[in-house]
C-alpha cells in the first residue's frame, strides 16, 4: 500500500506501483484538473508540485510518490486566488485552456524560487509547457504580472 498526501489529504493506493502519478490523480483520486497531454514529460500539461517542486506527474511512478506531498491545481489555493491564477485571469491568458493548469503550476513554482524572473528565466522555466493554441505572449505577460503583484 502506497500512501501520499494530495492537496492536504492522505490518499492510499494499492495497485501496480509503476503507475504514473498522473493517472492516480485523475482516475483514482478524482482530481481531473491535472491534464494528460503526452505521457512522456514532453508537454507539461500534467505539471504538479511534489514536495514543492514542479514535476511532470506522467513521469513520476507511484512508488516514487510514496510519502510525498503533492499539490495539484485544485489545491494551489483554496479559493483559486493564487497570484498566478489571478494574473492569468487579469491577462485573459487561456484560449482552449487545456494546458493552463500545467502552465500555472509551473509558473507558481518558478515564482516561488525566483520571485522576479528575467525574460530568459521565464522562457527557460516555461519552455517545457506546450500551448498549442499559442498563448505564450500572454503567459509571459501573466508571469510578469504575478511577479509584480496584481
Amino acid at each position: 500500500m502506497i500512501t501520499l498526501s494530495v492537496n492536504g489529504q492522505e490518499h492510499s493506493y494499492d495497485g501496480d506501483p509503476s503507475l504514473p502519478l498522473l493517472w492516480f490523480l485523475r482516475d483514482e483520486a478524482g482530481l481531473p484538473g491535472t491534464k494528460f497531454g503526452c505521457g512522456e514529460a514532453l508537454c507539461g500539461a500534467c505539471t504538479v508540485h511534489v514536495n514543492g517542486e514542479a514535476v511532470r506527474s506522467c513521469a513520476v511512478q507511484m512508488s516514487d510518490a510514496a510519502g510525498k506531498t503533492v499539490v495539484t491545481i485544485e489545491g494551489l489555493d483554496p479559493h483559486g486566488n493564487h497570484p498566478v491564477q489571478r494574473a492569468w485571469r487579469a491577462v485573459n491568458v487561456p484560449q482552449c485552456g487545456f494546458c493552463q493548469a500545467g502552465q500555472i503550476m509551473q509558473a507558481a513554482a518558478l515564482l516561488k524560487q525566483t520571485p522576479n524572473p528575467t525574460d530568459e528565466q521565464i522562457h527557460t522555466a516555461m519552455a517545457g509547457n506546450i500551448c498549442r493554441c499559442g498563448c505564450y505572449q500572454r503567459i509571459e505577460a501573466a508571469v510578469r504580472t504575478a511577479a509584480t503583484g496584481v
Binding site: 484538473g33 495539484t72 485544485e74 487561456p94 493548469a101 500555472i104
Partner: peptide, 18 residues
C-alpha cells in the same frame, strides 16, 4: 472575459476526459 476563465485557472473546467 471568457465564461470559463475561472474554471480553467482553477482546474475545475470540464474537458473530454474529466
Amino acid at each position: 472575459p471568457i465564461v470559463d476563465l475561472f474554471g480553467i485557472t482553477t482546474g475545475t473546467a470540464t474537458y473530454g476526459a474529466d
